[in-house]
Simulated assay, not measured.
Amino acid sequence: MDAITRITRRSFLARTATIAGGAGLTLAGGHFSSANAASPVPGDLQPDSPIAKNWENPLHMIATIESNVADSLGAPSCLERHKIYCLLLMKLIHRFWNGNKYGPFGTYPQRNKQIEYKHNSYTRYKGDLYAGPNLTIWDRYLGHNIAAMAVDRNGEIIDFEFNHNELFRSSSEHAEARLVRRLFDLTEIFDHWKTPRTSFKGLRDKARELDLTDITIYTSLESCAQCSGMMSLARVKEVVFLQFDPGAYRIGNIMYNLARKTAKSTSMSPLPIPADRVGIKYFTQLNDSYQRFLSTPPQTFFTSSDHKIKKSTDSITSFLCTDEAMDIFKKGGDEIAVMELEHPNVACSPGGWTNQMCLDHAKCFFEYADIQGFRGSPHKL
């Protein structure tokens, strides 16, 4: 290492150590370690606020949610209701499956089941697997096969959305973010899938309320910082997710622990619930499958038809284009058709729908989404 490199590295580490010092970290031998003396709680924080109470806690405590936090998960009937909507979300994702991350032409070695047809010079991959004579085959990439769905406290589905980063050439068009914006659009209109007018505090002839405190969002992938923040601002009650996202860094857990609702604060971050907590076996299957995807020797994910472009990636969005991921979502989606309820006549909330009503409603919603489910339009309806 030459003198200039050593000076530059030392300067960088010194600056970084100064920044890290404000976070209770020190630099020892070029590595960060926890400071022995805890930093005092800043004076602008309320002493009884969640962030003040967690100020001296190690990261693993702040990034972990106690297993007994979600009271509703203790009721078997509520677990069953969550399971209904998780399986429906899997069915919706498989229905609109599109793994064409780099377009429908070229070669995707891990997507042989999704080939539409082959020619000597090129291969074309399916977009909408179930497109019929009355439906459109979408050549445009719909978005990593990541979707989110909102359900009210009674069990009625409000709407759902897809990730559309590629379609809008934006890294912020995540499913949950688009869904929250869509829900607020729905406060200004009436449509077939609006909540019954008597559902919210007995108000009649009114649009939806402007906060989502009684809404559960089901999403296929653990929420990122952007989406967790938007759901927090919207006062979403809870978010159930089908797979961990290493790139989310447990930010949903951290926000929940540090922005939990208190007697003096109306701020609230949604409670993140891994789907295995509600009995979804596909949660483990998706996570294990992604780990296998990461552990296999590096291989080309995509090659263009002219062989000029090659893409190798281990991203989770690439995994969610593969045949293996598609098969898992298909199994989950197929399960809802043969689902036998253990608590068909039980409702999870006073005056809410029974689980049998929720299951019937979920099947009916899929029929609607089968025709009207494309969600690539701009946010305003």
Rank of each mutant, 00 (worst) to 15 (best):
A177K: 08
P196F: 06
H174T: 10
H174S: 08
N165E: 03
D205C: 09
E173K: 07
S170C: 14
H174C: 07
T187S: 14
K194I: 03
I189D: 00
R181W: 12
E166H: 04
D185V: 10
E209N: 13
V180P: 14
L183R: 01
R169P: 03
K201F: 15
A207H: 05
D185T: 09
K206P: 03
E188M: 09
V180L: 11
E166K: 07
V180K: 07
W193T: 05
K201E: 14
W193M: 05
N163H: 12
P196D: 07
I189V: 09
R182I: 04
L167W: 00
T198Y: 15
A175P: 13
F190C: 00
R208W: 09
I189E: 01
L186G: 06
S199L: 11
L167P: 00
L210G: 06
L203K: 15
F184V: 02
K194A: 11
R182K: 14
G202P: 07
F162H: 01
T195S: 15
T198M: 12
K201M: 13
L210F: 13
T187Y: 02
R208S: 12
E166P: 01
E166D: 13
R204A: 09
K194P: 00
F162A: 01
E188I: 02
T195Q: 09
R181P: 03
A177R: 10
R197H: 06
E188N: 11
R182Q: 10
I189P: 01
V180R: 10
E173D: 13
L186E: 07
H174M: 02
R181C: 10
F184G: 04
T195L: 09
S170P: 11
R181Q: 15
L167R: 00
F162R: 06
F200T: 11
V180E: 07
G202C: 05
T187M: 02
F190A: 04
F190I: 01
F200G: 05
R208L: 11
R178G: 11
T195G: 06
F200P: 05
F168D: 15
K201Q: 14
T195H: 12
K201C: 15
L186S: 12
R182N: 13
